[in-house]
Each structure stands twice: as structure tokens, then as C-alpha cells.
């Protein structure tokens, strides 16, 4: 307990020191506010524009969440097909790797042609960003089941569906969550980058990415700082949520469990 409070004090000290360094750089080098506003300006701007910031945050969060959820649903279904047939897996798995390596910005114009700029386009970009890690990890989980366990199920005349539901699927959950954790980090980035290129520009529909573009064009440097903080918070929030659900579902039996040796 003592260690923890010491850590807290140290963290606060380091944070304050960084703010002071920031302030000092501005004073010493006479940096203009449009280049680098001071911490206080950033704080007041953030407070003033909190409603705008929050609205943009929600829009981006929604795009990222819908894209991520779609990737989880589709990714798990694809993984089930891959796990079912070695043949299909060998033929199609390379394409998921390809999906991961294709520069998404190169595809964005196509997406805009197909679905138009706006919510759907950004969601689709997030979806493409997230899908490969879900497919790859879940497939790995579904097929890496101990052969003896499969034989145990056979000994008791289990159906294919029972093997899937009571063995392969629960076994793949930790793998799925590795995929979700990776994807959740990427989802927020995907949504913001997606908005930069394919976001909605109509009033009240622009997310963080759009707000960043707009603030840049108006040289609202202080607000840009607020937007960066908001974007970081979004990424962190997604990652934290993924970790929380992972803990909720797996902490009883998986690595994170507290080990107690009996006997």
C-alpha cells in the first residue's frame, strides 16, 4: 500500500515537471502561441470547447465500436469456417494476411466510391483494420486443441457440435481476446485515420478526425492539443474495455487467475 502511494506521488511529480518544462520551452525560446500554446491555454480551450469535443468523441467512438464489433462477429464466423476445413483454410488464409498488409489509405478512394464518405465508410475502414487479427487468433485457438481432449469427447460419443461448443470454442476464447485486444487498439486509430480521409463533413457529423482537419485549417493549435488528448483517451478507453471484458470472462481459469496451490 505504501509503495502504491509513493508511485502515485512520483507520477504526479513527473507530470508536473513535464508541464513546467513545456512552459519553460515557450518562455525561453519565445515560441508563438499558434505554434505551441502553453498548458494553461490548452486546459482552458479544452474546458470551453468540451461540448464540441465530446460530440466529436462520441461520433468517432461509435464508428470504432461498430466497426470493431462487426469485425469480431465476422472474424469469429470466418475462423469457424477455417477451423472446420484445412482445405478452405489453406486456400483462403493468405488473403487475411494480404488484408493486413494492404495500405488502407490506398483502398479508401474505392470505399468512398462504393459507400460514400461518412459513417459507413469509416466503419468499413475500422472493420478492415480489425478483421485480420480476429480471424488469425481465433482460428489458431480453434485448431490448437489438445488431440487427447478431442479423443476424450469421441470416447463419449460427442457430436461435432458438442466438440465445437464445449471444447473448441471455450478453448479459443483467450486467443479471441488476444485478437480483440490488438484490434481494439487499432480500432480507434482506424476510426480517426478513416475520418481524415473519408469522414463526414456535414455539420454535427464530424468526428475527431474531421475536427482535427478543421482545427488545422483554422490554426486552432490549442484545440488540436485537446483533440489529440481526446483521441488518445479513445484509444486507451477501447483497450481498457477489451482488457476488462477479458478479465471478466477469463480470470477464473486463465493466466490472470491468482494461483493457489492446494494439498
Amino acid at each position: 500500500m505504501k509503495k502504491r502511494s509513493l508511485l502515485l506521488v512520483n507520477s504526479v511529480l513527473v507530470f508536473s515537471a513535464l508541464l513546467m518544462l513545456w512552459e519553460a520551452v515557450i518562455l525561453v525560446f519565445h515560441v508563438q502561441p499558434y505554434m505551441l500554446p502553453n498548458p494553461l491555454t490548452v486546459a482552458t480551450t479544452t474546458a470551453e470547447r468540451l461540448p464540441d469535443l465530446f460530440a466529436a468523441f462520441l461520433i468517432t467512438a461509435e464508428e470504432a465500436a461498430v466497426g470493431l464489433l462487426a469485425a469480431i462477429v465476422v472474424g469469429v464466423l470466418v475462423a469457424l469456417v477455417f477451423a472446420r476445413s484445412t482445405w478452405v483454410r489453406r486456400l483462403l488464409f493468405p488473403y487475411t494476411v494480404l488484408l493486413q498488409t494492404v495500405p488502407i489509405m490506398a483502398v479508401t478512394p474505392l470505399i468512398i466510391i462504393w459507400v460514400g464518405a461518412g459513417f459507413s465508410a469509416v466503419m468499413l475502414i475500422v472493420f478492415i483494420f480489425c478483421l485480420p487479427s480476429i480471424i488469425a487468433n481465433t482460428t489458431q485457438g480453434l485448431i490448437s486443441v489438445d488431440e487427447n481432449l478431442v479423443q476424450l469427447f469421441m470416447m463419449h460419443n460427442a457430436s461435432q457440435f458438442q466438440v465445437l461448443r464445449k471444447l473448441r470454442f471455450p478453448h479459443s476464447l483467450p486467443y479471441l481476446f488476444v485478437g480483440i485486444r490488438v484490434a481494439s487498439g487499432v480500432a480507434a486509430i482506424g476510426a480517426i485515420v478513416g475520418e481524415l480521409f473519408a469522414g463526414s463533413t456535414s455539420v454535427g457529423h464530424g468526428g475527431l478526425g474531421y475536427s482535427i482537419l478543421y482545427a488545422q485549417s483554422q490554426t486552432q493549435t490549442a484545440y488540436l492539443f485537446s483533440l489529440v488528448v481526446a483521441a488518445t483517451a479513445l484509444g486507451f478507453g477501447f483497450f481498457f474495455l477489451a482488457m476488462f471484458f477479458e478479465w471478466l470472462l477469463l480470470h477464473n481459469w486463465h493466466e490472470s487467475a491468482t494461483q493457489s496451490q492446494l494439498e
Binding site: 489438445d146 487427447n148 481432449l149
Partner: peptide, 13 residues
């Protein structure tokens, strides 16, 4: 019949 494997082959979850 029942089969007992070398490993306990328990379902971790």
C-alpha cells in the same frame, strides 16, 4: 468404456 489419458486432460474453463 472410459479412457484415462496420461495428462489429466481437464477443461481449464
Amino acid at each position: 468404456m472410459s479412457f484415462v489419458f496420461q495428462d489429466a486432460t481437464l477443461l481449464q474453463w
